[in-house]
């Protein structure tokens, strides 16, 4: 999965979909994950980056990550990427 090419994410955490005109706010860790998705990083790479920076375990992170991905899919903000896995 990667962030839709249409989605624009600001440093402060405003996520804007220029096709639908919808906007969402995400917290700073959300911004980090979105930027990693935008760079087409896969789950292992994203997990590694977050676990290096924050004191959490992989199981907790992956649970929250899948919730977050589910929400992004619900709002049609993700695109499939054949070369990466979510």
């Amino acid at each position: 999965m990667k962030l839709s090419k249409n989605a624009a994410i600001s440093e402060s955490g405003l996520l804007f979909n220029p096709v639908t005109g919808e906007s969402y706010t995400v917290n700073p860790i959300g911004v980090e994950i979105l930027n990693l998705l935008k760079d087409e990083k896969d789950l292992d790479q994203i997990s590694k980056a977050i676990l290096e920076k924050y004191s959490t375990d992989r199981v907790s992170f992956e649970k929250d990550y899948q919730d977050f991905i589910g929400m992004l899919q619900h709002y049609k903000l993700l695109e499939r990427n054949e070369t990466t896995k979510a």
């Binding site: 249409n6 220029p18 096709v19 639908t20 005109g21 919808e22 906007s23």
Partner: peptide, 22 residues
């Protein structure tokens, strides 16, 4: 194209945003 963001009870856009829906 514009998405209505704030709609009055008359259905009029009181706020909106330009979008790029092909």
């Amino acid at each position: 194209p514009m998405r209505k963001q704030y709609i009055t009870d008359k259905g009029k856009a009181w706020g909106g945003i330009s979008i790029s829906d092909e």
